[in-house]
Each structure stands twice: as C-alpha cells, then as structure tokens.
Design a protein around this nucleic acid. Structure first.
Lengths: 173, 173
DNA sequence: AGATAATTGTTATCCAATATATCAAAAGCC
DNA sequence: GGCTTTTGATATATTGGATAACAATTATCT
C-alpha cells in the first residue's frame, strides 16, 4: 500500500478569503484542494506553529512579550548565573542576534548584564525585580488564556501526546 | 492542581555544543534546565518545525526545492487553471511576495504564467513538463527519505494522530 | 452607457529573523 | 611569553513576511 508521499511546505498566514465571508463570488470559484499537502507533516507543523505563535502574541499582548523574549525570561529564571552564550545556545539563538535582543530586554529593565568576577569576558544574565514580576504575569496569561485553550481543544491526554511527539522530533529526528 | 503554566518561544536552531562533542569543558559547566519551556507547546512546535524543514531541505537538495516551492508545485498539479491570487492565498503567501517566488519557478522552467482568456488581468498558473517531472522526483525523495523516516520515528498511528492534531490546531485554534 | 469601485499582478519598501565574518578584550594552553 | 580560544559585540547580507501604491482590467450601480 502506498504509504505517505507527503512532504513539506512554506506557509505564512491562514489567508483570509478576500472579503466575501460566506459562499464565494467573483474570481473565487471554489476552494482549492490541498491534496497531498495535507499529508505533509512539515506543512501542518508550520501552519500550526504560526497559529500558536499568533495566539501567544495576542494573549501576552498586554505585557508586550514575544515568544522568544518569554523563553529567555523563563530560562533566566530557571538558570541563574549563566552568560549570554549559554542562554543563546540553549534557545538556538545565534550570539550576534542575541545581543540586540538582550539590549531590548535590558532597556525595559527586565534583565541585566553583570560582568562575571571569574571570567571578565562574560556577562552573567540576571532577571530584575520587574523582570520577575513581568514573567510571573506572563506565565499566568499564557497558562490561563493560551495553553488552557489548547488543552481544551485537544484534551489533556492528546495535548501531552502531541508535546511528546514534537519533543521527540526535535530531539531524535 | 496546577495545570499547565507553559507558553511559547522563539527558536532558531538546535544549537551545537560549541565544539566539544562529549562531556563539557571550559565555560560550559552543565546543561541548562529547560524547565517550563519544555511544557510550552509553541516552543516544541517551533523546534520540531525547524528540524523537519531542515531535513526536508536536505532530502530534496538534489532538486533544489524549498518546502514553499514544493508546496506550490503540489498545489498547481492538484488545482489546474488557478491564478496567482488563488494559489498564494491558499498557501498563506501574500501576493506581492508570491511574484518573485513565481519568477524563480518560471525562470527554472518549472511552471508558466498564462494570461487568462476570460479575465485578462489574471495569470493562470500551469506546470511545465519539466515541472511535472521535478515534482514527481521530489515526491519520491520526500516520501522515501523524509516522511518515511518520520514514520519510522513515530510509528504510523502516532504520525497520523500528530498530523490530525496539527491540522486541528491550524483549523480550529 | 458612464461613473465608480474592486480585483489582479506588480513594484517599491519596510521590518524582523537569521546567518556569517570580524574584532577587541580576556582566558586558556604550551 | 606567545598562540589559540572564548565572549560579547559590530557590521552586514539574506530571507520571509507585511503594507502602500499603481496600471490594467473587470464588476457594479444608477
């Protein structure tokens, strides 16, 4: 039996049906067939990821945090005493790019660079008081607005299974 | 009971452990704790997506096709007689950005823009012979190298469940 | 029919994320 | 003390994604 001839895609946004909500009219004759596209794990992965990030942004909008920024704050809280390279590497952010990112967080007084006493090359990253407070609020928003809805949509068991598989792909694929 | 305080992240690449493969030495004291990060669906989604796209690129490298390009060719094959706006919208690509993408495909003789006889504003997109051939080869590469490995990693049932959940998120979340 | 609005493909930009090369300061190694 | 490596930083290139505007064409409305 033909297994899966799927593949991958590059997606951007859900694509709003140009202005007419219900049926269709002018040039929009009928819905296109995704066909084998819907069997491509990469395609669905990307679309789901975009959707989830979009929702995250919306949920945390009051705190003006991007997913990337939130992940940095989370890592700093969990791993005190680390330097830029370590944090950046863990998140898969390149060091040069991490600099301006930290500039942004530091300018908002969410974290601070402290010169290490052992190694005066490196900067130890520490959450400020405000950083901890913002992170705490962000966690609540994410939990109650964002992840809760995902949990609701999928069900707890499925959500856990999904998370496991995604982690496995990231780790072992 | 505390449900899920997870959230989202911005990830880039797996972050190779700066040159020493096995244990660790100089500044790299110990592995950082991901902590709540590993409970964030968005984080795992992004990392998995990057990993899958990376593998896709590698598998289809001989044909020099990106996931996005592959998805366009797939859509064209499945939906003949459509114009740029329709294809772009379906893939979530903005029309302005789709122009240069098509330029690329057309310059490689993979597809052609044909003026529509009904509506002389629009371009009907058609796969060329070469386009069909390349697409066919790409499908095989993707199926045998890429998706087959994913199938192997997750198992057919899990893979199907994963795909379902991702599609559900993209559709209903 | 004629005026007005909408659609299509396109160009020109803009912004953000990502990637590489390079550098000075500081440590590590022989 | 010299050579290499590491760290944070700067500059820069590339890419993906987003908006504004435009000419040509088509649709709509009166």
């Amino acid at each position: 039996m033909t297994v899966s001839k799927s593949a991958d895609v590059g997606v951007a946004k859900p694509a709003r049906s140009s202005r007419k909500e219900n049926g269709e009219a002018a040039g929009e004759s009928a819905a296109l067939q995704l066909g084998e596209l819907s069997e491509l794990l990469g395609y669905s992965l990307k679309r789901a990821q975009l959707r989830v990030f979009e929702d995250f942004l919306k949920c945390v909008a009051p705190l003006q945090l991007t997913p990337a920024q939130f992940s940095v704050l989370l890592l700093l809280e969990r791993n005190p005493g680390r330097n830029q390279t370590e944090i950046a590497n863990t998140l898969g952010i390149l060091r040069p790019n991490f600099v301006s990112m930290l500039d942004g967080l530091e300018s908002r007084d969410l974290c601070t660079r402290m010169r290490s006493t052992n190694d005066r090359r490196s900067h130890i990253l520490v959450l400020t008081e405000k950083g901890r407070a913002v992170l705490a609020r962000a966690k609540k928003l994410v939990a109650t607005r964002h992840e809760a809805r995902l949990n609701e949509l999928l069900g707890p068991a499925n959500r856990a299974a999904l998370l496991d598989m995604l982690a496995k792909i990231a780790r072992e694929f």
